[in-house]
Computed example of a mutant assay.
Amino acid sequence: MTSLALQQRYKGVAAEQESINLSQAERTVSIATGVKLALSGFKGIFKSPFSSIIKLGAGGYLLNRGITGHCELYSRMGRNSTEPVNVNIRSSFLIDKPRQQVYDFWRKLDNLPLFMKHLESVDLIDDTRSHWVLKLPVGLPKVSWDAEIVKDEPGYSIGWSSLPDSLIDNAGKVRFQDSPDGNGTLVDIIISYRPPAGGFGGGIAHILNPVFKNMVDDDVRNFKQYMDIDDTYVVYE
């Protein structure tokens, strides 16, 4: 084989690899679902021709998707590989409360659902580990994960990270600083998450980023309002 032919062959292989944007699990599910739809379409072709044609078309699409490992929808969304996509969200705000008081409230993590409306609960396992549950529409399965505080500077910062094998791989850090006039607290929040590699979440992560940013901003406003208005909360055991 000539060097030119080898180069063309390697380019073809590379192009094929670059076009794969589905994980192996997604490809398996696509093939299985495609076969099921196609068989159902064949069985009912004479009884319900219209619905059968739709099933055959959908089955063929899923089979092609699974066999090639390529999803055109993902490509149009900018998902061109199976590498996970990191989403980083940052927000800063001022709260009219002393720094230590704001830190103490946040450090008791089971306080978070009081203002983070997308959280159903945060249960403390021990002094550093906690169990988080997202609030989802009725009928959907619960999404939960365990997290651990990996850095704690009392009165100044809290850093956490999800534990290995969590459904949602995420990490965050909150920093607390005295405001310039010394009467309030500057809070700086950084949250990062990584959807499962090759998953649909990864495929649209860059589209969902503004949605998650708005969600965090809403929670931030809730937190600020809660801290500025409510002086009755308990921050100690």
Rank of each mutant, 00 (worst) to 15 (best):
V133T: 15
P84I: 00
S3F: 09
P195I: 09
G172M: 03
G59S: 07
G41S: 06
K151F: 04
I20A: 03
P164I: 09
R79G: 11
E237C: 04
I190C: 11
S157E: 07
L39Y: 08
P196Q: 02
I45A: 15
S30P: 09
N214K: 11
G66P: 01
G69M: 12
S161G: 00
S130W: 01
S48H: 02
S23Q: 15
E120Q: 12
G172A: 05
S19A: 15
E72V: 06
G34Y: 08
S92M: 08
F223D: 01
V85K: 07
Y10M: 13
V216G: 07
T2Q: 08
I20P: 01
G59Q: 04
N21S: 06
W132Y: 07
L208T: 04
K135V: 14
S179N: 07
D231V: 07
W160I: 00
M77H: 13
Q8I: 14
N209S: 13
S75M: 12
K173S: 15
P154H: 12
D96P: 00
I31N: 00
K142T: 09
P84E: 10
D165T: 05
W160N: 00
G78T: 14
L4N: 12
S48D: 13
T128L: 04
L186T: 10
D146T: 02
T2M: 06
D96R: 09
S3V: 11
L140S: 04
K213I: 12
G57L: 10
N64D: 11
G44R: 04
S121Q: 09
E148T: 01
G41K: 02
T33N: 08
A32P: 05
H206D: 15
I89E: 03
I189Q: 03
F105M: 05
I125W: 06
S92V: 15
P113W: 01
G57E: 10
H70K: 13
M116T: 05
I149E: 03
G78M: 09
D217P: 05
D181T: 13
P154R: 10
D231A: 07
P180L: 11
T28L: 05
D181F: 00
D181Q: 05
K135M: 14
W106Q: 04
L163S: 01
Q24H: 11
G44P: 01
Y193W: 11
G69K: 05
M227T: 03
L163M: 08
R76E: 13
K36E: 13
E26L: 10
S130Q: 00
